[in-house]
Amino acid sequence: MGDYSPGSKKVDVEPSPVSSRLVERWTGLVLRLGVWGSALLIVLGLLTSWVLPPESSASTEIPSISTVLGEISSGSFGGATLMFAGLILLMLTPFLRVLIALTAFAAERDWKFAGISLVVFLLLVGELVFSLR
């Protein structure tokens, strides 16, 4: 899309403040780690379930969150738990992204956007607590 109206301005890009660049860098890093970390766990889960012996095929039963957490804490978990852990990491990645923004805006003393980020974060955490209670 290269068509812009005469109302658009051709300007020199002003360098972003150091803190804004940090927000962008941290946010990008968290998103990349979340996506590729969860993809790695999912792949490991699939390999454990379908490729490695002794399981020739995986169960179609959906494990509960307490089962998953229990297996992870005990250190003895199967492919389905690894996949679940990958999916949970993926679902939590946006939470971390909002938390990073909140921290960065607060460090920047941009209280208006720190407050906005806090509202979004509280909405997300409220939904999480409500869902898993």
């Binding site: 999912i42 990958g86 679902m91 990645t93 939470f95 898993l132």
Partner: peptide
């Protein structure tokens, strides 16, 4: 992503996330 995460755990808590399908 954040919008989807807001409802993801609601579906999760109702047992609609099947890791064997989703993964």
């Amino acid at each position: 992503g954040v919008t989807a995460a807001a409802s993801a755990f609601i579906y999760f808590s109702h047992g609609h996330v099947n890791p064997l399908i989703a993964s």
